[in-house]
């Protein structure tokens, strides 16, 4: 067992303090209350004037900053969406326009081809008609020449047979 006069700190007991239970000893009230008032008032002043407003400011500033950043992000997002919509709109416009140009070109080329074909047809038809006319002429000429040739031939045959010359006119007359 520990020695009766020594405590864990090695300080001997003072006789006057062992009579009252220290936490309830009225002799201790005044100094404790006075120093409580002094320290509490000092601490309250420092905290309410300096420390707490500073912490509050930093927290507030961070909250504002986060809110600002969120707002900015929201704004950028809506701008992006608008740009995307514009792009899609202009893409659709361009597509429509190119379709129109293609259709127009096709129609124009088809019309041109048609016109050229008609011209060629007309030229060809004219040439055909011309050629047919010439053929007919030649046929008529040839047919008329056949009579002459036949008459001549017949005259010649007759002349040979009769031994005298027979004129073509005479043969024709006979025929």
């Amino acid at each position: 067992m520990a020695q009766p006069h020594n405590t864990e700190t090695g300080v001997p007991h003072e006789a006057g303090h062992s009579t009252a239970f220290p936490p309830l000893d009225p002799n201790n009230f005044a100094p404790q209350l006075i120093w409580l008032a002094i320290t509490f008032a000092a601490l309250y002043t420092v905290l309410s004037r300096v420390a707490l407003p500073r912490i509050g400011e930093v927290i507030e500033e961070r909250r504002d900053r986060i809110q600002r950043d969120l707002d900015a992000a929201e704004r950028l997002k809506s701008e992006t969406e608008k740009a995307l919509r514009d792009y899609e709109q202009s893409l659709a416009d361009a597509r429509n326009k190119s379709g129109a140009i293609a259709r127009e070109t096709r129609d124009r080329l088809a019309a041109e081809t048609e016109r050229e074909r008609a011209e060629v047809d007309a030229a060809v038809n004219a040439k055909i008609a011309d050629a047919e006319k010439r053929i007919n002429e030649m046929k008529t000429t040839a047919l008329s020449s056949v009579n002459d040739i036949a008459a001549e031939t017949a005259g010649a045959i007759v002349g040979k047979l009769l031994g005298e010359d027979v004129s073509v006119a005479e043969v024709k007359k006979v025929l």
């Binding site: 005044a30 100094p31 120093w35």
Partner: peptide, 12 residues
């Protein structure tokens, strides 16, 4: 008033 600086005051 007794405003003695005690060990209690020290810790406050």
């Amino acid at each position: 008033l007794d405003a003695t600086f005690t060990n209690s005051s020290l810790f406050m």
